[in-house]
């Protein structure tokens, strides 16, 4: 990066450190922080959407929809994350390729499963093996978002289901007494009030999601923990910047990052809780009313 970094092994002290911390590998490390933040930022709303769908389905009056909602939360919550990430993602990727293969290469006669091998025609590869590496990485990233959203969506569905059931029955009865339809009661009375009951559970999920990103490496997405381990490992003279086992320092850096992220989240969630509590028939809402009145 700097012009004086051309001969790393002759450097010492601060200049060595300046060059060391700006190597291409370190830039990739810094970039992975952005990858992780973007992943969380996309995954959280998508998972919430999946959760909302799951919870709504679970309390549907239509039996198959209800079974689907309940089955989704029960099955996904029961499977260990790591198994889900290893098996499901490969299966999902192969399903996409299988569909593309059927559409794009109808003239192909060889079997797709050849012993252990999964072989589709080269036009059906996803991404194509000729596409540049960043396309593969982006594809892996979105597979990761989808998998995370399905896993965390199941947990969120259960939390939201509980939140919906926690809304006082009297609220819904009053809505019905005013002549609201089921749909109106759901959207106008139940949904606005359920968040305050669901938020503690959802904030737990958010915290767990922040820390679950090392699972990304199973999908070939290089996250901060992968880079910290890779950079911190001892380096022999083959490398431009040889050093001993520095993993401790890198992991301390990650500790600071995660603690900072947790702190910011806590502050934001506390503000959100205060806003959601406003005017609600809960103890918190009651306390707010009294504080204003006195």
């Amino acid at each position: 990066m700097f012009s004086f970094c051309a001969e790393p092994k002759t450097l010492e002290g601060v200049t060595w450190l300046a060059c060391y911390l700006t190597t291409g590998k370190h830039i990739a490390f810094y970039g992975s922080f952005i990858t992780v933040m973007v992943l969380i930022a996309i995954t959280a709303p998508v998972a919430l959407l999946f959760g909302f769908g799951g919870a709504t389905a679970a309390r549907s009056t239509i039996a198959p929809l209800r079974w689907f909602g309940k089955g989704y939360t029960a099955i996904v919550r029961g499977i260990p994350d790591i198994a889900f990430f290893l098996f499901f993602v490969i299966a999902l990727d192969q399903a996409f390729e299988f569909l593309r293969h059927k559409v794009l290469c109808p003239e192909w006669t060889d079997p797709i499963r050849q012993g252990n091998d999964f072989v589709v025609c080269s036009a059906a590869k996803l991404p194509l093996s000729s596409s540049p590496q960043w396309v593969h990485e982006t594809y892996g990233f979105f597979l990761a978002v989808l998998t995370f959203a399905i896993v965390f969506g199941a947990f969120a569905a259960n939390v939201l289901y509980g939140g919906m059931r926690a809304v006082p029955r009297g609220q819904l009865e009053t809505a019905e007494a005013y002549g609201m339809s089921r749909r109106q009661t759901f959207w106008r009375i139940l949904v606005p009030q359920m968040w305050v009951y669901a938020l503690p559970g959802l904030s737990n999920l958010w915290m767990i999601l922040i820390k679950a990103t090392p699972l990304l490496f199973l999908l070939g997405v290089e996250d901060i923990v992968y880079w910290a381990r890779e950079l911190g490992g001892s380096k022999t003279q083959v490398f431009s910047y040889p050093h001993g086992d520095w993993r401790l320092y890198y992991f301390l850096g990650l500790l600071v990052f995660y603690l900072a992220l947790t702190k910011v989240s806590e502050v934001a969630l506390a503000k959100l809780m205060a806003r959601l509590t406003k005017g609600q028939a809960t103890m918190g809402g009651e306390a707010q009313r009294k504080a204003v009145a006195s």
Binding site: P127, S130, S131, P132, V135, F142
Partner: peptide, 18 residues
């Protein structure tokens, strides 16, 4: 997400089959 993956797909198909 659908749109994005569709975009990725569209991009990846535009490369030649080398």
């Amino acid at each position: 997400k659908l749109l994005l993956s569709a975009a990725v797909l569209a991009m990846s198909t535009s490369f030649a089959f080398a």
